[in-house]
């Protein structure tokens, strides 16, 4: 006698989550309930969230639909919104469209994958591409011919802009001259110091363009260099990481774990020699 219901036919509750006293704090993100980090607004209702929180909700909602969606309902007021406004500084801001193709059609799937990488916790790939060994074994002495393409795509992704050539060449030039520069006694310099110098140099140069994303960008750059992978292989590893979140994989790794060694560009590979 029971049953006969369907999901489409559920009883409905009040449309707005009723907030209790403490949930009304405007500086608090309604999704993580913490103080808002990287304030982001929805473009119609102007409700505020952490950028990561509203971005992950948007991604989750779009994944539930087979076609791409062009708007999402605000979690608070249910109004339809078509973009997320964030990175407000002075009179500039950035905008992330729910249907990304709507705002910026040059963005490829690879751009989206990179974009998602910035939403996941930093450091999850560190165990795959040990960044410190890159400095210890001085692999930077070998030119990385994929660096230019990687930089262009990465900066396009972060700025959501197509023409980033000036910034890309600026950063690329800095990196290449840094790697070529061999001051007296350079081989005695501890790798950690060299690493610190590199990170400071790049972040100082990139900060005025990338603002809050700078530090993460520098970390991702280092990881890419340390990976020694071709661009295609690197993308494969990134995708693997997004599809199988680290938390779902037991610490031993999964069977589908890509064997990084198989994908390395032999020309970028240096034997692992400890320099200390």
């Amino acid at each position: 006698m029971d049953g006969g219901q369907s999901d489409a036919n559920t009883s409905s509750a009040t449309s707005i989550p009723t907030a209790s006293s403490s949930y009304e704090d405007p500086n608090r993100c309604p999704i993580c309930l913490e103080a808002i980090k990287q304030e982001a607004y929805l473009d119609r209702c102007f409700h505020t969230f952490c950028y990561c929180c509203i971005a992950s909700w948007t991604r989750y909602v779009s994944r539930q639909h087979s076609r791409s969606v062009s708007s999402i309902k605000c979690p608070l007021c249910k109004r339809e919104n078509s973009s997320i406004i964030y990175g407000l500084s002075g009179n500039s801001f950035q905008r992330h469209y729910v249907n990304e193709a709507l705002g910026s059609s040059f963005l490829t799937r690879a751009h989206k994958v990179r974009w998602q990488c910035y939403d996941i916790e930093p450091g999850v790939m560190d165990h795959k591409f040990d960044p410190l060994s890159f400095w210890k074994s001085r692999r930077y002495l070998q030119e990385n011919r994929f660096l230019q393409a990687w930089l262009r795509r990465e900066i396009q992704t972060l700025l959501q802009e197509e023409d980033v050539e000036i910034i890309m060449y600026h950063v690329l030039g800095l990196i290449e001259s840094f790697f070529k520069r061999q001051p007296k006694g350079h081989h005695l310099q501890p790798p950690e110091e060299k690493r610190g110098e590199f990170k400071k140099l790049v972040s100082d140069a990139a900060r005025s363009f990338l603002s809050t994303r700078t530090d993460r960008f520098v970390d991702e750059l280092e990881l890419f260099l340390a990976s020694g992978l071709t661009l295609d292989a690197y993308d494969k590893v990134c995708m693997e990481h997004l599809h199988v979140p680290a938390s779902l994989v037991p610490s031993g790794g999964s069977a589908e774990d890509i064997n990084v060694q198989d994908l390395r560009d032999p020309r970028l590979c240096f034997p692992h020699v400890d320099m200390d």
Partner: peptide, 24 residues
């Protein structure tokens, strides 16, 4: 059988507000 526990869920609901919805 309650919409907010299914397709009308929003991450702004909390366990506390879900309880209130059930009372309603």
């Amino acid at each position: 059988c309650l919409d907010i526990l299914k397709n009308a869920w929003s991450p702004a609901w909390t366990l506390q507000s879900v309880c209130r919805a059930i009372i309603a």
